[in-house]
Simulated assay, not measured.
Amino acid sequence: MALSAAASTPATAPVSEARYDAEEILALVLARLEDDKAEDIVSIELRGKTTIADYMVVATGRSQRHAGAVAEHLVEALKARGVKGIRVEGMPACDWVLIDASDVIVHIFQPEVRGFYNIEKMWSGALASGSSRTTRG
């Protein structure tokens, strides 16, 4: 996937309030997760399968502290880029942190919780219907 010029600018450069696309948000999310050493990063394209988002990203933090730090850094980076209306769930316990960044939904799990919920399998119907899956980490 080629990044636009806006996606390759420093994290502090604001994205236009009126317009940022899902691919730019996704690129920022994936880069931030990799920088923070999140593990088993999976990106699932949801376009045409649901209206909740264009992409879902699932990643694992090694511990409660790591998952929380990864989530905090990601939210800070998204806000710095000008993404508005970010919603976060699960920060106190950090077993499963959900970050709703408009067209990209991010799930950051601790390993045992990710294995229990197996969220990728829930979306396997979307994958079988032609959505793409990218694994990183």
Score class of each variant (00 low, 15 high):
Leu28Ser: 06
Leu30Glu: 07
Ala31Ser: 15
Asp35Arg: 06
Asp35Ile: 02
Asp36His: 08
Glu39Ala: 14
Asp40His: 14
Asp40Lys: 14
Val42Asn: 00
Glu45His: 10
Glu45Asp: 14
Leu46Gln: 04
Arg47Asp: 05
Gly48Leu: 08
Lys49Glu: 14
Lys49Arg: 15
Thr51Gly: 13
Ile52Met: 12
Ala53Asp: 01
Asp54Phe: 00
Asp54Leu: 01
Tyr55Ile: 00
Met56Ser: 03
Met56Val: 06
Met56Phe: 12
Ala59Val: 03
Ala59Ser: 09
Thr60Trp: 02
Thr60His: 02
Ser63Arg: 07
Ser63Ile: 06
Gln64Ile: 12
Ala67Val: 08
Gly68Thr: 03
Val70Ala: 09
Val70Cys: 07
His73Pro: 07
Leu74Gly: 01
Leu74Thr: 01
Val75Trp: 02
Val75Tyr: 03
Glu76Cys: 01
Ala77Asn: 03
Leu78Thr: 00
Leu78Arg: 00
Arg81Gln: 08
Val83Arg: 06
Lys84His: 11
Lys84Gly: 13
Val88Ala: 07
Val88Tyr: 05
Glu89Leu: 06
Met91Trp: 09
Pro92Phe: 09
Ala93Ile: 12
Cys94Ala: 15
Asp95Thr: 14
Asp95Ile: 05
Asp95Met: 11
Asp95Asn: 13
Trp96Phe: 10
Trp96Cys: 11
Val97Ser: 07
Leu98Asp: 01
Asp100Lys: 04
Asp100Val: 04
Asp100Cys: 05
Ala101Thr: 04
Ser102Gln: 13
Ser102Tyr: 09
Asp103Gly: 05
Asp103Gln: 10
Ile105Ser: 01
His107Asp: 11
Ile108Ser: 03
Phe109Thr: 09
Phe109Gln: 09
Gln110Tyr: 13
Gln110Trp: 11
Gln110Asn: 13
Pro111Arg: 15
Pro111Ala: 15
Pro111Ile: 13
Glu112Val: 15
Val113Glu: 13
Val113Lys: 13
Phe116Ala: 14
Tyr117Cys: 09
Ile119Glu: 09
Glu120Gly: 07
Glu120Tyr: 07
Lys121His: 11
Ser124Asn: 11
Ala126Tyr: 13
Leu127Ile: 15
